[in-house]
Design a protein around this nucleic acid. Structure first.
Lengths: 341, 341
DNA sequence: CGGATTCTGAGGTAGGCAACTCAGGCCACG
DNA sequence: CGTGGCCTGAGTTGCCTACCTCAGAATCCG
């Protein structure tokens, strides 16, 4: 049994290739009656377009737009680098990936950027911020037929087609379990540092973490969260204060970036070994500290995977191809010193 | 700057398309002088074949052959299922994936199967067994121009082009670190169960595990490894014996399959909570035990990723396309109850 | 108001896209 | 005058798309 082609469908429906193509791509200029006939033929023959052929024949390249927060942390930089690498590879597949930067914390700016996006985009990936204007802008884009995926930080209330990222609540719980188990029955206080309490992912992680500690490790007391704004210096100040004020501090969890600050504080206090420290993301720095034994575990999401997944998902959405769930799921990765890639 | 095509190369070299194509695909019937001319033109124009077009124009589909151990454990079954799923999707891309089963433990049988593979294969993935005849057969295949990758279990001495799997030594170390840290200073004996000491991956894991425990956790003593042959009943017997003979058993590491046996033994002894148990692979059973808290951590490799990676790598090798290292690296995944996908 | 003219919507034709492939053709050699 | 070796030409792959055609409706003009 040979593969059924557009030709077959055209013959079956009694129309020309162009008409079938118009129906398939939802372009105008076809009578409703004809559309029905063509669709019936497609059903009957179980026709599936050949992605290779259609990509080859397209005049225009696919254009994907990625919106990242500007001037941000190491993880975002890694993500951007991965997106660019992915972009280079996808050029060969007739896909162009553009990266733009916006101010994450300014909802109106982000919404404005979304609205001012050029026409003819085939997909948009955006690091979403929870703000009414952003919700609106994403919905408008989605409604206009441009597939939208959220990246790293989700906005579940919108009509985005997909989320490329992890469940940060589960990530926080994971951090809690690791810290709790690594402490192995020791009792005392646990310091908690977040980047900003305006970031949904940070709040979710914090919440998951606190919940696990409260429920499973009664001997541990989580201190009130402090905001480090993902800046090394500021984080260091916070960490030093925590160490100074709480002699019985046994654990530290940094929800966001700024880990060099934490490490510096631990080193200054000479407590790199006995304080269990759980951090996020497998940056070059964190990698070194894992090996040194200063960071005990890292909870991470793979920026390379995320970049590729965003591109694949957007393309699949555009081409009407199925999304392979297992492939596009972003795992909550745990790294200890022994399984660093 | 437009993309350079075969046409351009042909014009530049002063030959026809067909000739360039022959040179590109290393087919016979071209004079050495002409080959040089064409290759020079390719260099000069920095020509890169269009995979889309070539896939489309191929008369024949790509054919990949996967060789899996027969009648095996849950992980292998999951891997096979993933390979079949991958195969279904790749059909649309002109790739056919066949799966065959061989007896893993019989080196000659595996070598024979490799030698009897049909002609015209575009790639072979094999769960390798360390046996001279197998080494020989893999090298012969590779030398005949068929890309070969090893799957799950590697054979570094051969001319296989790639290994799809994890570093099992590191996986064992990871298990050791998790177990050691989870025990948090408790002292006592640690039981070690392997499937078979003829399996390279099991030995490597065991070695990595023992090394970490010996070096980092002086309070723990690893008991001599016992072979459970990946069978539940046999593993249960071993686990029961360990629990009975060692009152101070605080940890268990099962290198292979048969975890239901371990769990049954732990339950019978009423020690599901206080013995730290680290297992491998995220099977349905292990997932449940993680949630229940009987298994404390799972060290895993993602069968879906491995299936897709094997297919992608073989294709890339065949098409002369680059391999994206980050995408094809198989991670040593750590799962605790909170980050189960 | 009738016929000519211009729109407009519906649908067809043919020429790409970038490679693969097969039936020949040409030349030189024996 | 065969026979290889080397190479060309033209047809294919499955789909996209710019450019047409054509009928019927709307508009115009005398």
């Amino acid at each position: 049994m040979k593969k059924t082609t557009l030709q077959d469908v055209a013959r079956e429906a009694g129309v020309s290739l162009a008409t079938v193509d118009r129906v398939l791509n939802g372009r105008a200029g076809v009578h409703v009656r004809t559309i029905d006939r063509v669709q019936a033929a497609i059903e009957r023959l179980n026709y599936q377009p050949d992605r290779l052929a259609s990509r080859l024949a397209r005049a225009r390249d696919f254009r994907l737009q990625i919106l990242l927060p500007q001037g941000s942390n190491e993880f975002m930089k890694a993500l951007e680098a991965e997106i660019r690498t992915t972009g280079e590879r996808f050029v060969q597949e007739r896909v162009r990936i553009d990266v733009a930067h916006v101010d994450v914390f300014d909802g109106d700016a982000l919404a404005g950027a979304l609205e001012r996006l050029p026409d003819g985009l085939d997909g948009v990936a955006v690091v979403a911020l929870d703000h009414p204007a952003v919700v609106e802008a994403i919905n408008a884009l989605a409604d206009s037929g441009t597939p939208v995926v959220t990246l790293v930080s989700d906005l579940p209330g919108t009509r985005r087609a997909h989320f490329v990222g992890i469940d940060n609540y589960a990530a926080g719980r994971t951090a809690g379990t690791l810290l709790g188990r690594f402490l192995g029955g020791r009792t005392g206080k646990v310091g908690l540092i977040a980047g900003s309490l305006a970031l949904r992912d940070h709040i979710e992680r914090q919440y998951g973490f606190e919940q696990v500690i409260a429920r499973e490790y009664p001997g541990l007391e989580v201190l009130p969260v402090r905001e480090g704004r993902d800046e090394n210096a500021r984080v260091e100040t916070l960490a030093r204060a925590l160490l100074r004020e709480h002699a019985d501090l046994v654990g530290l969890y940094n929800v966001g970036a700024g880990n060099p600050g934490v490490v510096a504080a631990l080193e200054a206090a000479g407590r790199t070994r006995d304080v269990v420290f759980v951090a996020h993301e497998l940056t070059a720095f964190n990698r070194r500290q894992l090996v040194r034994g200063v960071i005990d575990a890292v909870v991470a999401q793979d920026p390379g995977h995320m970049a590729r997944s965003a591109a694949r998902v957007l393309l699949a959405l555009r081409e009407g191809a199925p999304i392979v769930a297992g492939q596009e799921r972003i795992n909550i990765d745990i790294f200890v010193r022994d399984n660093i890639p």
